Amino acid sequence: MTVSEGSTFPQGVKFNYVPYTPEDSDVLACGVPISMDLDKEIAGKKVVLVAVPGAFTPTCTANHIPPFLEKINELKSKGVDEVIVLSANDPFVMSAWGKALHGADKVKFVSDPNSQFAKANGLDLDLTDKGMGVRVKRFAVIVDKGKVTYIGVDPQGVEKSGVDAVVAKL
């Protein structure tokens, strides 16, 4: 499998996440993780999948995801049905991160268990030498009714995977 512009988004992808509920809005509240069947999640929709190497890490927390949250209305006005934030962190960490960023009610913060999707698509990042294991590269993908219309991967910074690059491609 590979994700590339013009290709059909891979099928059979499963992520895990803790659905946001107002009663569990406190950052320390732990919901119950469930599986997300991405085939069903993206069917007939325009979805932006934004991936980061790690929740609560400097670039991801300060520069990458907050602009997506700030511009969620602009994204939706351009036809985006859903924004999904992806990392290899476990679903509890992703849930807490979404709440800490005040965005858990705006986008879904999901986990790529053991970086399975990332590895299968050449989007994994080995940070073992830094004590972080195998992670997900920083990238953004626009999927429109199952077709990949944009993919931007950033080895450094957020030029190709940031919200401004995504908005320009919508």
Rank of each mutant, 00 (worst) to 15 (best):
N16R: 13
A55Q: 03
K99V: 00
E23S: 15
T149K: 10
L75Q: 02
A51Q: 01
V27D: 00
L101N: 07
G98A: 08
D154G: 10
C60N: 06
E82A: 12
T57R: 03
S77Q: 10
V143D: 09
N114T: 12
V153G: 11
S25Q: 14
H64P: 09
S35R: 12
N16G: 09
A51T: 03
A62C: 12
S4C: 10
D112R: 06
F92D: 14
G133W: 02
P66M: 04
Q11G: 14
G103A: 06
P67G: 04
P19N: 06
M132A: 14
D26M: 14
A120Q: 15
C30A: 14
G157S: 09
V158I: 15
A168Y: 02
I42V: 09
V3R: 10
L28R: 12
I72Y: 02
K145Y: 11
T57A: 07
A55P: 06
A104F: 00
L123D: 10
A88E: 00
D126F: 00
P22T: 09
T61G: 15
V80K: 05
P67D: 05
D164M: 03
T8E: 15
S161Q: 05
M94D: 00
D144K: 12
Q116F: 10
C60F: 03
P66Q: 01
E70T: 15
A55F: 00
V136K: 01
H102E: 15
L86I: 13
P58Q: 03
Y150A: 08
K78D: 00
S77L: 04
V18W: 02
P53T: 07
Q116A: 15
A118R: 06
G98S: 08
L123F: 11
A88I: 07
N63L: 13
G79S: 13
F139Q: 08
D126C: 04
K71T: 11
P19R: 08
M94Y: 02
